[in-house]
Design a protein around this nucleic acid. Structure first.
Lengths: 343, 343
DNA sequence: TTGTAAGCGTTATCAG
DNA sequence: CTGATAACGCTTACAA
């Protein structure tokens, strides 16, 4: 540790009191220009830097935002740009406004273990990646007046504070795009975690269904296929799946499953888009760099991060009011993985 | 904010003083079992959780490690698994030992702006990703007794605290692998940032040179090619480069340039490994999922993160002594991107 | 076994 | 404009 020089040292060195030094470093107008100079001089001389912890204690604020990430999420990061991309958005805003990010990782899954973490650390607010682990979490946090914003997944019914993409619309756009290209035999692939599918996919299914309906294609359960979410298992799942069912269009729900699908099709010699058209949800920048590049329902993950942080800081600093939830319409980025059916 | 219930509230509620409550929550042995029960009861009842800031101030320790990341690094994260992977290693250890990670991002590049950041935040130590931005940084930090560990890049001559891979050996292994396969016309591609190449590549060049020497192949400057490091520019650089020079073996220095190379070769219809063999430095897991999968000189990035954190915490907690630098020998993972020359 | 009281380094409220 | 002095919430000798 650097030898600690405190505000008192500076005060004595420049023949004033702590109060004055405090005023100087906080750029208070009510301090004589000359003493201000003297104090700054002393600060330089002694190499003083204010102790953030002490300041936090006195002010009751840290200028630190806790970012809650599940172990799971930080685990399968290779090839999954969600985490780093959202982080980029978050830090951009944080830096602008002089806030720092404290990484908080979860062990348990229940609201209890959540709130425990939440309170143990003195941070000014929470950004919760991947949405609430527990349905009641939002309600509990609201009740305890804990400032927070969920990023990504969310319950569309809930009144909780979150930022997300309009997944229903996304599912609709993806389906419509393929239908417009003449595809009739389309599958929506959704990740299955512990036997259930995530809320954002539930919404996408609804949108997909709407697109089918508009085109007069009857919806059947088999058009939505549950699959594993990791690289390894999704690859083998798709391998066996495509052996007995060969749609002309496939909608994938994220970067990882899209990559394994792309790899599998290449390995099996199935041409994209000639034999099968692919649409993926996810980061458009990422899918630009795959081969073939993929038609993408854009998630704008960086925007998610930026917006969530802005919402949270507005709330924390008690500034302007912002609507509790912000949902962005997705856009489709057309690339080389889709073409007219059967041409 | 949750209504703050302090140690004093608990004390009054359970008819003891702050001191006793403090002892209870710190699990001190010198407190009566029955009052201990009473106090815990009160804690539960009131929903008390200790304030970390206050505790930090009193103890002079935070249980927080600052992770210094350059803006640049957090910017080009898509497709670059270094950051998330090293983070995984770091958080694994941090969680085990009850530490948290504070993300610190750099604006300037000089040691001055570095140390300023370093001191403004009260953290117990620093993990500096990508190595020192300034040659003197390590020395300065050492002099100021700031606990730190550099991760990744480093000056091999320096006495500073860092963990890294043996890049000279890596360059040697990569070169030798291709040479053993009969290749004679090999290029080592190294990233160029602001006109100069990074230290870890300087070492790789040395190793590459050693491999050539052993095989009796004369070294020439043109065998080492400087190129841009981002997706976009590296793609176009390679495009023009390969028009006028067509080696039989290429060594790429990271994930991003490898991807753009792979994409380019595919786009141009140049077969890997039939027409050209590829070796890359980087994360073996990542390169397993490219097509073709790439022969990789493994960086074990997660190991870097884990080890760095362990070193730092040993130093912070003043436990056992650990050598200031730890360097790990790389391994080569053989995959489908290399084959015998001309067969 | 428990209480008292002095810090830890700031900020903030009064006076002067 | 500047100085005392009391917070902020917790730990820790030192007493009792």
């Amino acid at each position: 540790m650097p030898k600690k020089v405190t505000i008192l040292d500076v005060a004595q060195f420049s023949n004033v009191t702590k109060s004055t030094v405090s005023r100087v470093i906080n750029d208070s107008p009510l301090v004589n220009e000359r003493t201000k100079q003297r104090v700054w001089q002393a600060i330089k001389e002694l190499g003083y830097t204010p102790n953030r912890t002490a300041r936090s204690l006195a002010l009751g604020k840290n200028h630190v935002i806790g970012m809650v990430v599940s172990e799971q999420q930080i685990s399968d990061v290779v090839l999954n740009p969600f985490f780093p991309t959202v982080l980029k958005g978050i830090t951009t805003v944080a830096n602008q406004q002089g806030y720092n990010i404290l990484l908080l990782s979860l062990s348990g899954q229940d609201a209890q273990s959540y709130t425990e973490i939440l309170q143990r650390h003195t941070v000014d607010g929470f950004l919760i990646l991947g949405g609430p682990s527990d349905v009641n979490l939002g309600r509990d946090l609201d009740r305890m007046k804990v400032p927070y914003v969920f990023i990504g997944k969310h319950d569309p019914e809930a009144q909780h504070s979150f930022v997300s993409t309009d997944n229903e619309e996304g599912g609709y756009i993806a389906g419509k795009h393929l239908i417009d290209l003449g595809h009739r035999n389309i599958r929506l692939m959704v990740g299955e975690v512990k036997g259930s599918i995530l809320v954002h996919n539930v919404e996408r299914i609804a949108g997909f269904r709407r697109a089918l309906g508009e085109a007069g294609i009857p919806f059947e359960d088999r058009l939505v296929v549950k699959m594993p979410t990791d690289m390894e298992n999704s690859y083998y799942f798709l391998k066996t799946y495509l052996e007995r069912d060969r749609p002309s269009g496939l909608i994938l729900s994220n970067e990882v499953t899209s990559m394994s699908c792309l790899n599998l099709l290449l390995d099996e010699g199935i041409a994209v888009p000639d034999e099968i058209s692919l649409v993926s949800f996810g980061d458009p920048q990422f899918f630009r760099n795959t081969r073939p590049s993929l038609t993408t329902v854009s998630q704008s993950v960086e925007w998610l991060g930026r917006t969530a942080m802005e919402m949270l800081l507005k709330r924390v600093t008690g500034g302007e009011w912002l609507p509790p939830k912000i949902i962005r319409k997705p856009e489709i980025v057309l690339r080389g993985s889709t073409k007219k059916c059967g041409v």
